[in-house]
Design a protein around this nucleic acid. Structure first.
Length: 488
RNA sequence: CGGGAAGUAGCCUAGCGGCUAAGGCGUCAGGUUUGGGACCUGAAGAUCGCGGGUUCGAUCCCCGCCUUCCCGACCA
């Protein structure tokens, strides 16, 4: 029947769009570059959000909310910051039928307005640390948008913390990127590399930026979260000083960190296949669906059996549902639930009931096997756990299989291909992650980007020892070990 | 923001300077079915993306705009 999903091998971009649209996760809106997140997509975000929020609270953070509109002059206080965001600002010039004395921009991020407030709230070391987070929408006027991955308006959380010392702030930035790593790997089943950004890739206004980087199925990198050590840059821009334990005035040390609805895109791209969405059980609104095989003569009996089974599954804490709709054929329902990404499907027909078992199909592997009636609940629980584990392992294997050590510039060009002969857009694209030594010179990085489109995604924190060799780009003595890739 | 492509019912597509814009999927009603995207009958559903122009007449030709997709530039 209708091939609703373009296969990955034909057109990876189109495949992704087909999944998002057909699984009803999101839709285009009448507003350029802005999407509507539909209930099935929002449900995924809510689960990510819940897990993140729980861990923020566990690490001592509190939620707050700051205004959507930011006076333009605030942005201008931090030179590098305004320079970085200027091209993507949306600005409000009129309100209440009059032109405003000073235009407001719609927040692209909230450092400036938050630090304008921190100035009022911080006087003494006793006021520190300040560990705030906010869940909000932000707007960055992007030239080129993609559902979930890059839209003009998106949902995110942004943490903004203030500290007494440099060490404390650096620890915080590291603590939060580690929180991100654990949520993304454990809850989203997306393996990531955790590392430091190069100067060229860091946040505008940060001293340094840490990020987690994932590999999508087309071997391109996706930044899944960032945590910034802001030094005293914003404290100085907003004149936030405090009296330290010695009674002297000092500038406050800062961090900020964020993750967004882009994570939903990361989950989709990492796990899904040509049949549709594949979701980790931890994020699936429906973890299991029972599809009864309905025949006129046995319908009542089968449904009764399924209702009872449904009750048992729910009692065991499994998010289960029964698809008793008899206006659709069984085959249609199989395909539909697969497209929606439900991790486990149970097929229950008169023959199964007579044989004392039900059929259990796994979304991740496609395996289908008979499970004895008495063991269904326990097997379902085990299988959900197995799927959660398998998705991570499978994605990790894919990433590792597509990560190679490269030692020279010719090797880089061969690995990524030249920018001009771009094969992106198909799953057969060249490249992957190139692990290579780097001298630290932005000129090298720029040259590679121009010629191959590959950039430094991060310098993994756990791979900076034993660096003894030459920069793979220029041959000068290396200072860092970096991961290079084409990125979203 | 530059180059290319597209926009006809919820979705996919046909069409043609001219009579009532055609078909498939889906939807709704009824019936028959249901172990991998079933079938029959009937029904509803279109400002042909928006605006202007050419013309006796425009969904079709021309111009402008909007939106999406691909490529490029840009990019937390």
């Amino acid at each position: 029947m209708a091939d609703k999903i373009t296969p990955r091998a034909v057109d990876y971009s189109q495949w992704y769009i087909d999944i998002v649209l057909n699984a009803k996760l999101a839709d285009y809106s009448p507003v350029k570059g802005s999407m509507v997140i539909r209930p099935r997509g929002y449900a995924i975000w809510e689960r990510i959000q819940a897990e993140m929020d729980r861990r923020f609270k566990e690490t001592g953070h509190e939620n707050a909310y700051f205004p959507l509109l930011i006076p333009m002059s605030f942005l201008q206080k931090e030179a590098e910051h305004v320079e970085g965001f200027k091209p993507e600002l949306a600005v409000v010039t009129h309100a209440g039928g009059e032109e405003l004395d000073e235009p407001y921009c719609i927040r692209p991020t909230s450092e400036t307005i938050i630090w304008a407030m921190y100035k009022n709230w911080i006087q003494s070391w006793r006021d520190l640390p300040l560990l705030y987070n906010q869940w909000a929408n932000v707007m960055r006027w992007e030239k080129r948008t993609r559902l979930f991955l890059r839209t003009s308006e998106f949902l995110w959380q942004e943490g903004h913390t203030a500290h007494e010392t440099k060490e404390e702030a650096e620890e915080e930035a590291l603590r939060m990127i580690e929180v991100y790593r654990s949520v993304v790997e454990e809850t989203l089943c997306v393996p990531v590399l955790m590392g430091r950004k190069s100067e060229a890739e860091k946040f505008a206004g940060a001293v340094h930026t840490l990020s987690i980087e994932a590999m999508m199925q087309d071997k391109k990198a996706l930044q899944a979260g960032t945590s910034h050590f802001l030094g005293q840059n914003f404290a100085k821009a907003f004149e936030v000083q405090f009296q330290n334990r010695e009674g002297k005035l000092d500038w406050v040390w800062a961090t900020s960190w964020g993750t967004s609805t882009r994570l939903v895109g990361a989950v989709i791209m990492t796990h899904s296949d040509d049949k549709g969405l594949v979701l980790p059980p931890s994020l699936a609104a429906d973890q299991l669906v029972i599809v009864p095989i309905l025949r006129n003569d046995t319908k009542a009996m089968v449904l009764e059996y399924c209702e009872k089974l449904l009750g048992e599954l729910k009692a065991a804490g499994i998010r289960a549902r029964l698809d008793s709709d008899d206006s659709q054929s069984t085959g249609w329902k199989f395909a539909e639930w697969e497209m929606r990404g439900v991790p486990i499907r149970l097929e229950v027909g008169p023959k199964d009931i007579a044989a004392g078992h039900v059929m259990m199909a796994r979304r991740d592997t496609g395996e289908k096997l008979a499970v004895q009636a008495a063991a269904v609940v326990a097997t379902a629980k085990e299988t959900l756990a197995a799927i959660q584990k398998n998705l991570f392992e499978r994605a990790k294997k894919f990433r590792d299989d597509n990560t190679h050590t490269i030692t020279d510039y010719e090797g880089m060009k061969a690995f990524f291909g030249l920018a001009a002969e771009d094969s992106a857009g198909t799953a057969a694209a060249k490249g992957g992650f190139a692990e290579a030594l780097w001298c630290g010179d932005p000129v090298c990085e720029k040259k590679l980007k121009t010629e191959t489109k590959a950039t430094i995604r991060c310098m993994p924190l756990d791979r900076q020892t034993g660096i003894d060799g030459k920069c793979a780009l220029c041959g000068a003595p290396a200072k860092h070990r970096a991961i290079f890739a084409r990125a979203y």
